[in-house]
């Protein structure tokens, strides 16, 4: 098929937008392995910046992973059941609860962080522990888990499946465990990927909630951008990108749950 001129104009524009998004990432990754960024590539490639980043900031990486995993567990424990209840109930109260639960998307992280600090900042033990950051992350990520599970629940008639299970003798908890949860897998997976990705990259809340002893990866990044030479910031960014890359790829593969396709492969 012969393409029109407009196709190529559009394609060029799209490539330009892609370049805008990708070139800086590429530059930053390159800078992280360049001996001297000011002199450019000709100064040679090295992993020494990455190694230095590791010695300086390895603890932030582990803390970020710890918080992300803890955040995911909290989301699974409280978010998935909540999504189920919200899908079950269609009344006004349920909709109001849903509105409230997704409110942290609409309210800037800075405001949520301030609210947490003015309320619980006085409890020293709590304020100084990583759990303080965890609370912020759970609030911020919960809407994504809930929406993801809700989307899957609305894509199939889970009420009838439950009635089917009940007619076979399964009680409430049995149905929840053997029918609802397994059939929500796609949504739970997509939500989980989103939650971990967002938690690992969260800065707005975390910057306010962190202490010198509870620095996460993005906090460390901000730190290195402000106080270290460009190559270290770049190398650190490189480490971050490598960490988050598998998550983003998985998110592209599994992040958009579709309604289960009903393919009829063997008609009678």
């Amino acid at each position: 098929m012969k393409r029109s001129r407009i196709f190529y104009v559009n394609l060029a524009f799209t490539l330009l937008v892609c370049a805008f998004l990708i070139v800086p990432i590429f530059l930053s990754m390159l800078a992280g392995v360049t001996v001297n960024f000011f002199q450019g590539i000709k100064s040679g490639l090295t992993l020494s910046w990455v190694i230095e980043v590791w010695s300086l900031y390895a603890d932030t990486i582990f803390l970020s992973l710890l918080i992300a995993v803890a955040c995911l567990i909290c989301n699974l424990l409280i978010g998935v059941p909540a999504a189920y209840v919200l899908a079950r109930k269609s009344g006004r109260v349920a909709r109001m609860i849903e509105e409230t639960l997704v409110l942290p998307i609409a309210i800037p992280g800075l405001a949520i962080a301030l609210a947490l600090i003015v309320t619980y900042g006085g409890i020293r033990e709590f304020r100084l522990s990583w759990l303080f950051i965890l609370v912020g992350h759970v609030l911020y990520t919960l809407p994504f888990m809930i929406r993801s599970v809700l989307a899957v629940l609305s894509s199939f008639d889970f009420r009838t499946l439950e009635e089917g299970a009940a007619s076979l003798g399964a009680g409430f908890w049995k149905r929840f465990r053997t029918i609802i949860i397994p059939n929500c897998r796609a949504g739970i997976l997509a939500g989980s990927l989103m939650v971990v990705t967002l938690s690992v990259g969260e800065f707005n809340l975390t910057w306010m909630l962190h202490t010198p002893l509870t620095k996460t990866l993005p906090v460390g990044l901000a730190d290195s951008y402000a106080s270290m030479r460009l190559e270290i910031g770049s190398a650190y960014t490189l480490v971050f990108l490598i960490m988050i890359l598998p998550l983003l790829i998985a998110l592209q593969l599994y992040g958009r749950p579709r309604a289960a396709k009903t393919t009829i492969s063997d008609p009678e």
């Binding site: 799209t14 070139v23 800086p24 990705t197 990259g201 800065f203 990044l221 951008y225 960014t237």
Partner: peptide
Amino acid sequence: MLTFPLAFPGVVIGFLVIML
């Protein structure tokens, strides 16, 4: 490529602007 930076934190984006 267009959806890849979806979950980048603001700090990293700030740094990318510096790169650019």
